[in-house]
């Protein structure tokens, strides 16, 4: 069903999309022109067309392998952070006292730049996959725990009582009332967690590794292969944006019952 209000929104969303596309396409064109006209130095700012050629070269040289390595780290770390973070959040939220103390602690943890701890991770876990994944989890974990705890504390007690009066088991209450009312909070947390998680994995790869997108970025940077560097950056950004948009799309589907826009 799409009432008149929805139509207005679709039209507005569409024109927004046109503006965003314009904001991306126009500078790229200007950039291309500037390089060809000799205004920009192509060794530091290679033309977009040169970057596209470089990306083709990257794929020929086995970019897919590095992509797979990084994607595996990112996905495994994300799932681990999501599952353990949610479970821990739920457990900690059971006691009001514990929740209060832990929330304070996690707020401290959230305000510390995670990269400070990277050398420590290397000392303890070495430089392999385990360290990359662990650092990704570490980067994303706290956000999920905090969001879960906040989410649980905002679940409407009346709804729980209603479910209980109808004979809902604890598991049913958790899935059908808790999780469902927390879904918007959790989705938003997952979005932020994913950004932190990708950042964590990439930084860990840039710091020490022999493979992965982070490794490519740091090595192309060190060897002045700017076209390839920009190529990897473009691809990595694209993946981040796509994932983000996917979660935003999931979130938008809840707008009808929530009444948000």
């Amino acid at each position: 069903m799409s009432g008149p209000a929805t139509d207005v929104h679709t039209v507005r969303a569409r024109s927004d999309a046109v503006y965003v596309a314009g904001l991306i396409v126009v500078p790229i064109l200007l950039w291309e022109v500037a390089v060809r006209a000799g205004i920009l130095q192509s060794s530091l700012a290679p033309a977009p067309s040169a970057v596209v050629t470089a990306i083709r070269g990257l794929f020929e040289d086995g970019l897919l392998y590095d992509l797979r390595v990084t994607a595996t780290y990112v996905i495994v770390a994300f799932l681990l952070a999501l599952i353990t973070g949610t479970v821990l959040g739920v457990v900690l939220a059971q006691s009001e006292r514990v929740a209060q103390v832990v929330r304070g602690f996690l707020t401290f943890l959230l305000s510390i730049p995670k990269s400070l701890f990277l050398p420590l991770f290397i000392l303890i876990l070495g430089i392999g996959a385990l360290q990359k994944i662990a650092f990704g989890v570490f980067s994303a974990f706290a956000v999920i725990v905090v969001a879960t705890m906040v989410g649980i504390s905002t679940v409407d007690q009346n709804l729980l009582q209603m479910a209980r009066s109808q004979g809902a088991s604890r598991a049913q209450m958790f899935v059908k009332v808790h999780l469902r009312s927390m879904a918007p909070t959790l989705l938003e947390a997952a979005r932020i967690a994913m950004i932190l998680n990708i950042t964590g994995v990439l930084i860990a790869e840039m710091y020490v590794s022999r493979e992965g997108l982070g490794f490519l970025i740091s090595s192309y940077g060190q060897t002045f292969q700017v076209e390839r560097l920009l190529g990897v950056i473009a691809i990595t950004s694209l993946i981040g944006i796509l994932f983000n948009e996917f979660l935003r799309w999931c979130d938008k589907r809840q707008n009808r019952w929530r009444g948000g826009v």
Partner: peptide, 18 residues
Amino acid sequence: PQPDQVAVAFQDACLLPW
């Protein structure tokens, strides 16, 4: 609760908004 015998209609409807 005795869900097989007793049903409750709560004061503020208590519907699941989603």
